[in-house]
Amino acid sequence: MAQHVLLNNVDHHDLRVITHKSAALGDAVMLAHTFPAEFRALQAHYPIVYQKTADGLSFQAVALLGLQAGQNLFLCPEGWDAAYIPLALRRQPFLIGRDGQGLQVHVDLDSPRLSRTEGEPLFLPQGGTTPYLQQISAILGAIHEGVQHADDFLRALLSHELLEPFVLQTQDSQGQAQNLSGFYTLQEERMAALDAASLGELHAQGHLQALYMMLASQSQFASLIERQARVPEAHG
């Protein structure tokens, strides 16, 4: 049960955060929410796709980390097996709050990452913020900024009818067939057929790079399938 509170240097002066990645700390997840400004960093490691939001009325961009629920194929005994970790996971156990004066840093006091004895400290002995907490603040700021422009990109995808559902057929560690479904990817033929005016409009709106990064990320499906076949039992 999450317990989100405003972070402060009085009540939380001795809090520390365990930063290594493991299933025990909540990292056994098959996807991480993302936004177009992060696509460039993600596309070298993870497929970027869309899924329906919980209310079924819109779409949310996600980076796929596994091919079935609760599976993260990037977890290994040494931590995280990729050069880039999605911001949605790096920011944990912190989240963005707000009041009348602006954004705030909140923390989930029920997170297994919090400790009083190990991990990265949040505050200096005299009360100032540590470099680690400053980094977290920057990550939360990047997420907040990125999310502000995510709807514009989604509208562009939908207006040009560039999203399509797909089914990916894979095999589990016993060789049993499995289908990955419920996600949406770029309609490559429709994108290739966009005329100069449409491409110019997408470029002017700042969406063209994110489109190409999302398209490039599709090659990472082969990497996920290879990871599942190579070491499935280590990442469930």
Rank of each mutant, 00 (worst) to 15 (best):
Q3S: 13
K21Q: 09
A24L: 14
A24I: 03
G26P: 10
A28S: 14
V29W: 08
M30R: 06
A32Q: 06
F35Y: 15
P36D: 06
F39H: 07
R40Q: 12
Q43L: 05
H45E: 03
P47G: 10
I48M: 06
Q51P: 00
Q51D: 01
T53L: 14
A61E: 03
L65M: 15
G66N: 07
N72W: 04
E78R: 12
A82D: 09
P86K: 00
L87V: 11
L87R: 12
L89M: 14
L89T: 01
R90I: 06
R91T: 02
P93M: 08
D99K: 10
D99M: 08
G102Y: 08
Q104H: 09
V105A: 09
V105F: 14
L109V: 11
D110N: 15
P112Q: 07
S115W: 01
G119C: 04
P125S: 10
I143M: 15
A150E: 13
L158N: 09
P165G: 05
D172T: 09
Q174M: 11
Q176Y: 05
L180M: 11
Q187Y: 08
E188T: 05
E188F: 05
R190D: 14
L194Y: 02
L202M: 09
L202A: 00
H203R: 13
Q205T: 02
L208G: 05
A210N: 04
L211Q: 02
Y212N: 05
M214V: 02
Q218W: 05
S219Q: 15
Q220N: 15
F221C: 00
E226C: 05
Q228V: 02
A229Q: 15
H235Q: 12
G236F: 12
